[in-house]
Amino acid sequence: MPILRGLILLIVALACALPAVADAYQVLLLISSRDKVYQEAVSGLRQGRDFSDRVIFLSDYAEADLARTIREDRPHLIAAVGDRALAAARKVRQIPVVSLMAVSFHRIPGSTPNITGVDLFIRPEHYMNLFAAMKLSRVGVLYDPEKSGYYLKKALQQASKSGIELLPKVVKSSEEVVGQLAKSRGEMDAIWMIPDASAVSHQSAEAYFLFSMRQQVPVISFSSSHLRLGAAVVIEADQEEMGRQAGEMVRAILQGTPVSELPPTTPRKIMLKVNQRVLNHLGIPAAAIMRLPNFSKE
């Protein structure tokens, strides 16, 4: 069959003749998906564009062969944006990895010395200062020990220093959130949402705000998307700035700084946002909150 023979010949010819056209680049920018949540951070990371990069969106591929890309393209480092990107980059041991926008980042064991990055968790003392300013003494927090146990440990230490009683409630999946909140009625005078996928998801987020409304207690959260749902106050990391922080790490590594000298860091620029209507409804004065130092305020 001449057409079929021609097609097979074309395949073989292309396989042999198509050159390795990819230009050499310094940074492999591995992004979990094209979701807009990542766009600001990536924009911050690439600001200045003083390094060359290649962008791969993992969601575009059923399975992206990262090992092969590394082997053939030999980038100097990987900037991994998102959890899937970090999970894929973790398998690469021979080149540095800078993680960004991955809530799973702090679960990377210390035995992976080629990985550094910017944690999505904000230092707990910022929240404790906020709780103190709001005159909250008993603050409930839902968490999964496997996902955010280390953060809760630090938060508990910080809380005891600040004279605040944290009431941790364990959930292993978002389905347990409603039940756990129901059991906590009357125990707490505020509820704190942390970026833990077992405790907070699209499905469970609403449960916090229903609880807030019925129990007349404020919700303090980490994402401004929760403000419109009914969160009273949000402390949020500036994602573009986190991108810039990761960009600085990338440049430092490209200039020869060993990864061991660039420890993981927390978000540098954090913003305080309030939902005035909810605060008014709960009778919490906003003035003391807005006077808190170290925040960009909106």
């Binding site: 059923a62 991955a102 809530v103």
Partner: peptide, 28 residues
Amino acid sequence: LCEVQEETLSVLGSRETETTATGRFSRL
């Protein structure tokens, strides 16, 4: 088979869903 979940999108109020190749290319 370890399916890595995109926890960040989940907690930040976005969502990543399954893809399908039924239209001759991969789409959410």
